[in-house]
Design a protein around this nucleic acid. Structure first.
Lengths: 180, 180
DNA sequence: CCTACCGATCGGTAGG
DNA sequence: CCTACCGATCGGTAGG
């Protein structure tokens, strides 16, 4: 069983059960291997959590950031990033919704390397929004990035909690109205 | 040790560690009582979680809904609800930020009575926003309620993850601009 | 990669 | 409200 195959399951598991609910024993059972066999790939639960966050970030890059890079920098790219984010929620790339949002909510009150990595990834996403908001000539790029991200996270939240698919339409329409 | 005194600690504990991280043993140790003494008040961990959610909802009502009831129904009340929500985040009524947001993120993928209660509370909050959006004459009250809630949740998220107090100002300014 | 094990902690119970 | 305990599961280790 390769490390990548383990992490592929770990990412899906953690998006539903949380990074703390991702226990070595259950993950090993699910992959039909021994606990110590799985453990040997990572060396500690924290290293498994960190590797899982990295794997999730790679998927986010492939599913959201890279496709949007087709669009011209500035307003067009900003729209593509937001639309791509909503699409990634809509397609259920992770069964538990946005992995980073779930990990952020779980670890924001627990100092340590996992929180730091999640925070770094979320800051990177906001910086990408802000960069294109600035190119697009927004009055206050950080403000616009905050609002656009909040709308996307709001759709994730509504869909995960109520199964309300209309939230995707709401987020898209609000983003459209708010773009410079 | 009264049930209310136990729940007061449980609410703070769970807002940081999560409703699953709220273990009977740690809570009992923190309150300097025996596990079984605490357990007797609730009968199961799930009942403790449900009672903790109820206690948090009561605080939310007292801190956000009730003060806003001073404002006239419609646009004024809608502004007071949003402002009150941001103020409640700013005052750190719960040490881990918005209790319901944290509980929703934790339980949205786990069917059961805890998720149902959290969902019911969140739907009640959104319905309150929507009701006053309608009275205020919004074109699409549900859309407005979605956006206003997303902005508040975005401030909670940013403050909890980055400690960014400017997020409160950002949320308030976006809400102001969006009110009908 | 495995079996077999460690001490700690989990939710919960018996009995008072 | 307590002490004392239950089986299950946790992260992690020894040894191969």
């Amino acid at each position: 069983m390769s490390r990548d195959a383990i992490l592929s399951r770990a990412v899906d598991f953690a998006s539903v059960e949380g990074l703390e609910g991702l226990t070595i024993g259950r993950l090993a059972g699910d992959l039909e291997m021994s606990k110590s066999g799985l453990f040997g790939h990572f060396g500690s639960k924290e290293e498994l959590q960190l590797a899982t966050v990295d794997a999730a970030c790679a998927i986010f890059g492939r599913e959201v950031i890279e496709p949007a890079a087709q669009a011209a920098p500035g307003r067009e790219r900003l729209g593509a990033l937001c639309d791509g984010f909503v699409g990634y929620l809509e397609r259920e790339v992770f069964p538990g919704g946005c992995f980073l949002a779930a990990a952020a909510a779980e670890f924001d009150g627990r100092p340590g390397p996992v929180r730091d990595k999640v925070r770094g990834a979320m800051i990177g996403w906001l910086a990408e929004l802000e960069r294109h908001a600035e190119i697009a000539g927004a009055d206050d790029p950080a403000q616009l990035a905050f609002e656009l991200n909040a709308l996307g996270q709001g759709a994730n939240h509504a869909y995960q909690l109520y199964g309300d698919r209309e939230a995707f339409t709401r987020a898209r329409s609000a983003v459209m109205r708010r773009l410079p």
